[in-house]
């Protein structure tokens, strides 16, 4: 019994651990057709060096991006055209923020911080799939950590060395 318990614990610990080992998103599930706050957790620098820049790419189908400013960091919103027009509470939207960049800060390797932005997950996104927000950590001495790998069909994020942070999409909650 004791042995079995320990093994169960170990298996769970391993499974849960790998999911949060890298730059990741705090709330891992969200319904489509809703406003969602993406919180990126940065657990370490690059090879021991402090993080100076965090960039995150906004995937297609994610609109109305509003980043949360951070003291000590310069915020930049890179705008661009979407691949198609999305419906935002009745308003057709065909361009917006496609990349968010926090720069000019310094987050030491032995410190932890969070970077947040609010988005609207359009109903064009498919429930059941995982939506990825590729993120790049740029550090001093030209080092970088790129959390940009998206699992191919049949692959899991655990197979990847540099998995992009992702959020599992749920069915839209019925009406308002």
């Amino acid at each position: 019994m004791f042995r079995k318990t320990m093994m169960t614990l170990a298996a769970v610990a391993l499974g849960a651990g790998t999911a949060s080992a890298h730059v990741s998103i705090q709330v891992k599930e969200a319904p489509v057709g809703s406003t969602y706050k993406v919180v990126l957790q940065v657990p370490h620098g690059c090879e021991g060096k402090p993080t100076n820049v965090l960039r995150v790419q906004i995937p297609e189908g994610v609109i109305a991006v509003k980043p949360q400013p951070k003291a000590g960091w310069t915020l930049e919103k890179v705008r661009g055209a979407y691949a198609k027009s999305y419906d935002y509470y009745g308003t057709p939207t065909n361009e917006g923020v496609k990349e968010v960049v926090w720069s000019g800060g310094s987050l030491a390797d032995d410190e932890y911080d969070e970077f947040a932005f609010r988005v609207y997950l359009t109903k064009d996104l498919k429930a059941g799939e995982t939506l990825y927000f590729p993120a790049v950590q740029e550090c001093s001495e030209g080092l970088a950590e790129r959390w940009i790998e998206i699992p191919a069909a049949g692959q899991s994020a655990d197979d990847l060395e540099l998995p992009a942070p992702g959020v599992k999409l749920l069915e839209a909650t019925g009406g308002h």
């Binding site: 769970v12 610990a13 499974g15 849960a16 949060s20 080992a21």
Partner: peptide, 11 residues
């Protein structure tokens, strides 16, 4: 255990 672990940001 899973809840505890996922709430801690690990590296």
């Amino acid at each position: 255990v899973w809840l505890c672990l996922t709430s801690i940001a690990m590296a």
